[in-house]
């Protein structure tokens, strides 16, 4: 699952992480969305990146320490899904 590209649909009002958890073998999301574990790390398709709310400091700090971080890294538990994000494209990052 990891490494494949996904498109996310529906589930407006939930976190992106929750939508990914619904995928077959989605993100582990060990901490359940508390911005603590980084097991919900994803790479957002660059075209979509600017359409997301920017990361809060806690998320940025966590991302900065990840081995697999890239410029388009986000923690999916920190992203609120909205209708405007239907079809959002992303890749699940490898485990740290």
């Amino acid at each position: 699952m990891q490494g494949n590209e996904h498109r996310v649909d529906g589930l407006a009002g939930r976190k992106l992480m929750e939508a990914l958890r619904e995928f077959d073998f989605g993100v582990a999301a060990i901490c359940g969305g508390m911005c603590s574990c980084a097991t919900c790390h994803v790479y957002i398709d660059p075209e979509w990146l600017s359409r997301l709310q920017p990361a809060e400091p806690a998320e940025r700090d966590l991302l900065a320490e990840l081995r697999h971080a890239r410029p388009n890294s986000r923690l999916s538990c920190q992203i609120d899904l909205t209708d405007a994000l239907n079809d959002l494209a992303l890749t699940i990052a490898p485990e740290e």
Partner: peptide, 12 residues
């Protein structure tokens, strides 16, 4: 405590 940088670094 409220220190995301240290906690991720600490895990390594």
């Amino acid at each position: 405590i409220n220190n995301a940088k240290d906690q991720m670094a600490a895990r390594k």
